[in-house]
Amino acid sequence: MALSTVPAPAAQSRPAADPSQDVSRVKAVLFAARRTCRSVSSCEEAVRLWCSGYRRADGDHDGIPCENVCSTKQEVDAIRARIGC
């Protein structure tokens, strides 16, 4: 009795992903997962946390993350411009 071979399905071609983007996303998620507004001590830390994916930092959606350390939108906007967020 001969065994028949079934041809393997053709591999679907997918564009090659940039591994550095994947690593950056993972790092951002891990950074955000470890940090909360209670754990930051400066507005710059809060803005970095927010820009890294911690959306709960601006719960009221007024553009000011972690209002325990950031007081004005102008302060936040200046930090965002400086760090490129």
Results as ranks from 00 to 15, higher is better:
residue 1 M to G: 13
residue 1 M to A: 11
residue 2 A to C: 08
residue 2 A to P: 14
residue 3 L to M: 10
residue 3 L to T: 11
residue 4 S to L: 09
residue 4 S to T: 09
residue 4 S to E: 07
residue 5 T to A: 14
residue 5 T to M: 12
residue 5 T to P: 00
residue 6 V to L: 13
residue 8 A to F: 08
residue 9 P to M: 08
residue 9 P to W: 03
residue 11 A to V: 11
residue 11 A to Q: 14
residue 11 A to K: 14
residue 11 A to N: 07
residue 13 S to N: 10
residue 13 S to W: 11
residue 14 R to C: 07
residue 14 R to V: 09
residue 14 R to W: 07
residue 14 R to Y: 10
residue 19 P to M: 07
residue 19 P to H: 04
residue 20 S to Y: 02
residue 21 Q to F: 12
residue 21 Q to M: 12
residue 21 Q to A: 15
residue 22 D to Y: 04
residue 23 V to G: 00
residue 24 S to N: 07
residue 24 S to Y: 07
residue 24 S to G: 03
residue 26 V to M: 14
residue 27 K to M: 12
residue 27 K to V: 04
residue 28 A to W: 01
residue 28 A to F: 01
residue 28 A to K: 14
residue 28 A to M: 09
residue 29 V to D: 09
residue 30 L to C: 05
residue 30 L to P: 01
residue 31 F to G: 01
residue 31 F to P: 00
residue 31 F to T: 00
residue 32 A to F: 00
residue 32 A to N: 03
residue 32 A to G: 15
residue 32 A to D: 01
residue 33 A to V: 02
residue 33 A to H: 11
residue 35 R to H: 15
residue 36 T to W: 06
residue 36 T to Q: 10
residue 36 T to L: 07
residue 38 R to F: 08
residue 38 R to I: 04
residue 38 R to T: 09
residue 38 R to M: 06
residue 39 S to I: 06
residue 40 V to G: 00
residue 40 V to N: 03
residue 41 S to R: 15
residue 42 S to M: 02
residue 42 S to Y: 01
residue 42 S to P: 08
residue 42 S to W: 01
residue 43 C to R: 00
residue 44 E to F: 03
residue 44 E to H: 06
residue 44 E to A: 12
residue 45 E to T: 03
residue 45 E to A: 13
residue 46 A to T: 05
residue 46 A to P: 06
residue 47 V to R: 03
residue 48 R to Q: 14
residue 49 L to A: 07
residue 50 W to I: 00
residue 53 G to H: 01
residue 53 G to W: 04
residue 53 G to L: 07
residue 56 R to A: 15
residue 57 A to Y: 05
residue 57 A to N: 04
residue 57 A to Q: 01
residue 58 D to K: 04
residue 59 G to R: 08
residue 59 G to K: 06
residue 59 G to Q: 08
residue 59 G to W: 11
residue 61 H to L: 15
residue 61 H to F: 11
residue 63 G to I: 12
residue 63 G to H: 09
residue 64 I to D: 12
residue 64 I to N: 09
residue 67 E to D: 15
residue 67 E to R: 10
residue 67 E to A: 08
residue 68 N to I: 05
residue 68 N to L: 06
residue 69 V to W: 01
residue 69 V to E: 04
residue 70 C to D: 06
residue 74 Q to P: 00
residue 74 Q to C: 02
residue 75 E to L: 06
residue 76 V to Y: 01
residue 76 V to H: 04
residue 76 V to C: 05
residue 78 A to I: 02
residue 80 R to F: 00
residue 80 R to G: 08
residue 80 R to Q: 14
residue 81 A to T: 10
residue 82 R to C: 01
residue 82 R to Q: 15
residue 82 R to K: 15
residue 82 R to V: 02
residue 83 I to C: 05
residue 83 I to V: 14
residue 85 C to R: 05
